[in-house]
């Protein structure tokens, strides 16, 4: 196919985006995680995070968190001006360790859910959400 200007622009933009993906955790995020886990190691396991692959509107992105034995689940948006999103604490009469809500995402980023399980261990799951229109008032 012809390598049109449109194609060149698209490839260029994609390359830039890939290059710009921040791989390091920012200090704010690390602090929040440390406060929640008390510095304990976070592994993988009993935590499921459901988020759309592409969010049309960053102002309202539906997400779900679910677990079998979590006591508390913290959700972070790694690319928002402030990373904290919510912390779900399940009480004695919680029917299941499941919660669903809608959140704001400033742009394409990773959403991370960290759960504190009944046995005191921590597990996490993350999901990358592409956002077409940012949702933090920008």
């Amino acid at each position: 196919m012809h390598f049109t200007r449109r194609n060149a622009l698209a490839t260029g933009a994609c390359a830039l985006m890939l290059a710009g993906l921040p791989m390091r955790l920012s200090a704010a995020v690390e602090e929040k995680i440390a406060a929640f886990t008390g510095g304990a190691a976070v592994g993988e396991g009993d935590i499921r995070l459901t988020a759309p692959e592409i969010a049309e509107n960053g102002n309202t992105v539906p997400i779900e968190v679910a677990s079998d034995t979590a006591v508390s689940i913290m959700v972070l948006a790694m690319g928002n001006p402030t990373p904290g999103v919510a912390e779900f604490n399940f009480g004695a009469l919680a029917g299941s360790r499941y919660a669903s809500t809608r959140i704001r995402l400033a742009g394409t980023q990773d959403v991370v859910a960290i759960a504190r399980l009944e046995d005191g261990s921590f597990v996490q799951a993350s999901s990358t959400v592409k956002v077409t229109i940012g949702g933090c008032g920008g």
């Binding site: 928002n80 912390e87 704001r104």
Partner: peptide
């Protein structure tokens, strides 16, 4: 008795 207790931050939608 408590069922759920959610700490909310500005990233929760309107």
């Amino acid at each position: 008795q408590n069922v759920i207790d959610v700490k909310m931050e500005p990233a929760i939608s309107t």
